[in-house]
Computed example of a mutant assay.
Amino acid sequence: MKTENCCTGCNRPDLPWAGRGTELPIAGCRFTLYPMSDKYIEIILGALEKTDTSAVWSETDALSTVYRGKLPYVADAVQALFLNAYRPGVHMALEGQFSKGCPGDVSGDTVLNREGEAPNAELVKDIHFPVHCKLALYPLGDAQYIDEIAKVWYMAQEEGLNPKTIHYATRIDGDVQDVFTYLTHVCERMENAPAVHHYVLHFTMNCNSPTEEN
Rank of each mutant, 00 (worst) to 15 (best):
G101C: 06
G96H: 05
A118C: 12
E159L: 11
T53P: 00
T184F: 07
G160Y: 07
R171I: 03
R114T: 11
H128N: 07
V152D: 04
E188N: 14
P25G: 11
L137T: 01
V74K: 01
A193Q: 08
D105L: 03
K164S: 09
W57P: 01
G104M: 04
A55Y: 10
E213H: 10
D76A: 03
T32V: 10
L83K: 09
Y138T: 01
Q79M: 14
E4R: 15
A193E: 08
I166L: 15
D14F: 15
D142L: 05
H185A: 15
H202F: 08
T22G: 04
T3L: 12
T170A: 11
E188D: 13
R68Q: 07
D52F: 12
P16C: 07
G141Q: 01
E148G: 08
V186A: 05
P13A: 06
P88R: 03
N208A: 15
S209R: 01
D105I: 04
A18E: 04
A77Y: 02
L140R: 02
S54P: 01
L24F: 06
Y40C: 11
P72F: 05
I149E: 12
T3Q: 13
A93T: 05
T3K: 14
T204G: 09
R20I: 07
E188T: 09
V179I: 10
I26Y: 02
G160P: 05
P139V: 04
L161Q: 06
E115D: 11
R20H: 11
T184K: 10
D178P: 00
I43Y: 04
W153S: 13
L183K: 04
K39A: 13
H197A: 12
G21T: 05
T110K: 03
C7E: 13
N206Q: 10
A55H: 08
F180Y: 08
V66W: 01
P88Q: 06
E191D: 14
L71G: 00
L33N: 00
E117I: 14
L112S: 10
G69M: 01
E117K: 12
E213W: 11
L183T: 05
F203Q: 04
E159T: 02
L201Q: 05
G116T: 07
E4P: 04
R30A: 10
D173N: 12
